[in-house]
Design a protein around this nucleic acid. Structure first.
Lengths: 344, 344
DNA sequence: CGTTTCCATGGAAACGATTCCATACAACAC
DNA sequence: GTGTTGTATGGAATCGTTTCCATGGAAACG
């Protein structure tokens, strides 16, 4: 099929290419007659402008990039959905990429987004700011960090104050009598991994609980490392009686292996996850979580990026987190009356 | 910052623009000396080709579109992830869009993808083939339907044989003694909604179970309609003793409201969901599901689309489904020994 | 030595849209 | 009637890359 171009539209409407373009761009310097004729020609020919040609001439592509760690993680799936809807409402299409928690893939995707001349990029960064993250700065590409940041890079960001939620969680577990709390940490190559670990360390010290370094397992934010972490921690000479997982996917892995090992969550061992996933409340026992609003995060990230694209310099935003106590971290009850998560 | 173009690269390398372009495109008609000099210039200038300009001249954008119903649905999140990774391995970037189960948004997104001249589109279609779905055909844009199809459109597709899984589920529930099975149906505007409903109807008839039309609730594949469906079905004069939800998000909604109403899944009422989501097995009781391989579906869809892009005419593929029995649909046991999903 | 073939190169045109700048016309003021 | 201003239009240049086609030089062949 031969492509319909703006030349065909202009010819059918009986105007010049420049006038047709002005009409389609909403330029007011056009007569009502020209507008009507061009609109009729567009409809008759089912014409769609070529976005590549537009972007090439106009220096903007009306698209933004969003690079997340893994769209299968419900937190990032929700974030992607919110960002995409907010961007679409502002006239931008979102190009979504997955880094799979790997720096090489992060770099590859960022290069792709740069090559496609997206108007801006929202990214949950991994690593210390070398590679393609550095290129974003060098090229002055409008950028907003979401959820995570890179030390030393002055990029506007929207993140979570994990300190508050983690402090509440540790305090809650201490009040329930736990003295050895196992922590399944995120990767130290991510700011969230570092921040949440540091917050955990401070909260443990403040609560006067055991600071045995063996109580910390360094995972990679994937479900499998959640399972491996629980497995390692439960093999300690003095295993923890409570667990705190630094993200939802690792919590899923933790639940699966506790299930497999016949350990009853809530009764035998307490479990709290960072990130509130909708279905965590449907588990039995329902999972205690450190909650923050992923929707708000996504909306703010888009607002900030639009400001940066327009030449503004938005202030970074830190959102609150809070503990939501459910049955998985409540005081153990007697087996006869307590709900449990057991092997079927 | 002034943009670096291929002219700058050519000048620094001491070759013509045409030679620089040939080197970067991997054209063999270049000398090793030219290749080395261009490569060095690219590195020194941190040059990234402008993908818009490339696409404009070369008539291909090296991108594909994937339009799903809702990336928050774990089924589609997994599908998106698989498609994206398979496409990336083949040298294509994936532009991901959400229709939010709405035809206007489906049309809007398809228009956007068409405007961006993607090389092909994979879509889980909604509706009867009017609007922008029709434009895909008219413009002969390489298209593959995934999960769902449109009656009367001869587009290669990769779908699931839901009949087998649903027949197994109904048979399993009948063998457990259920005579009134409630069905939470997907929207009849989707082929999966229609097919699964028809399969359910046939399986019910074949098993000699109640074909009371009140046992069917027509939902919209969102969690809220799963809740509403359960609510409606449980208010019948003769409520069902077993439920079959036509997708995972509606099953989540069903679980939530059963939880809220204090109905014990597995003990008071059996529940089976179409689509196997990883965490369904972590519920207590673990959820019975009709399973099909979303990963395989995504890979096959990409393979098929690549064939269509290359001028091929791949055969449509129908993948199997099978029932996985877990505790949510097992024979009710006595309260003292049975796991349950209860209000906390 | 003359002709043919192969490899490599460079300049210009093409791709489809936007935008710059020159021009025409009508309305208004003096 | 003349000059100014505002609206509207059209042709050509621009955007960054690829590709077409012409050309030159070297090697192979008769």
């Amino acid at each position: 099929m031969v492509a319909i171009t703006i030349k065909d539209v202009a010819a059918l409407a009986g105007v010049s290419v420049a006038t047709a373009s002005r009409v389609l761009s909403g330029n007011p310097a056009t007569s009502p007659d020209s507008r009507a004729r061009v609109a009729a020609a567009v409809t008759e020919l089912d014409y769609r402008p070529n976005a590549q040609a537009r972007a090439l001439r106009s220096t903007r592509s009306d698209s933004i990039g969003l690079l997340v760690s893994d769209v299968r993680n419900p937190f990032f799936a929700d974030l992607a959905h919110t960002v995409e809807q907010a961007a679409l409402a502002a006239g931008y299409v979102t190009l979504l990429g997955n880094a799979n928690e790997r720096k090489e893939q992060q770099d590859r995707y960022l290069d792709t987004l740069i090559s496609r001349r997206v108007d801006g990029i929202i990214v949950a960064p991994l690593g210390e700011g070398s590679g393609s993250i550095r290129s974003l700065i060098t090229r002055e590409i409008p950028t907003v960090f979401v959820d995570r940041t890179v030390d030393g890079l002055d990029i506007p960001s929207v993140t979570t104050d994990s300190e508050a939620g983690i402090r509440q969680a540790v305090h809650h577990l201490a009040a329930a009598g736990h003295t050895r709390i196992g922590y399944i940490s995120g990767p130290q190559a991510t700011s969230t991994g570092r921040d949440r670990f540091a917050a955990f360390t401070r909260a443990i010290a403040a609560a006067g609980l055991s600071q045995d370094p063996e109580l910390v397992y360094f995972g990679d934010y994937q479900a499998a490392s959640g399972s491996a972490g629980v497995h390692a921690l439960l093999q300690l000479r003095e295993p923890p009686t409570a667990l705190l997982a630094a993200d939802s996917l690792m919590a899923v892995g933790a639940i699966a292996i506790l299930h497999k090992l016949g350990r009853r969550i809530g009764a035998d061992i307490a479990l709290i996850a960072f990130d509130d996933i909708e279905w965590f409340a449907l588990l039995n026992p329902a999972l205690s979580v450190i909650s923050h609003s992923v929707e708000e995060m996504g909306r703010i990230a888009v607002d900030m990026l639009l400001q940066v694209i327009d030449g503004g310099e938005p202030e970074s935003v830190v959102l609150p987190s809070e503990l939501i106590v459910r049955a998985s971290s409540s005081t153990p009850t007697s087996p006869a009356s307590g709900p449990s998560l057991r092997t079927n």
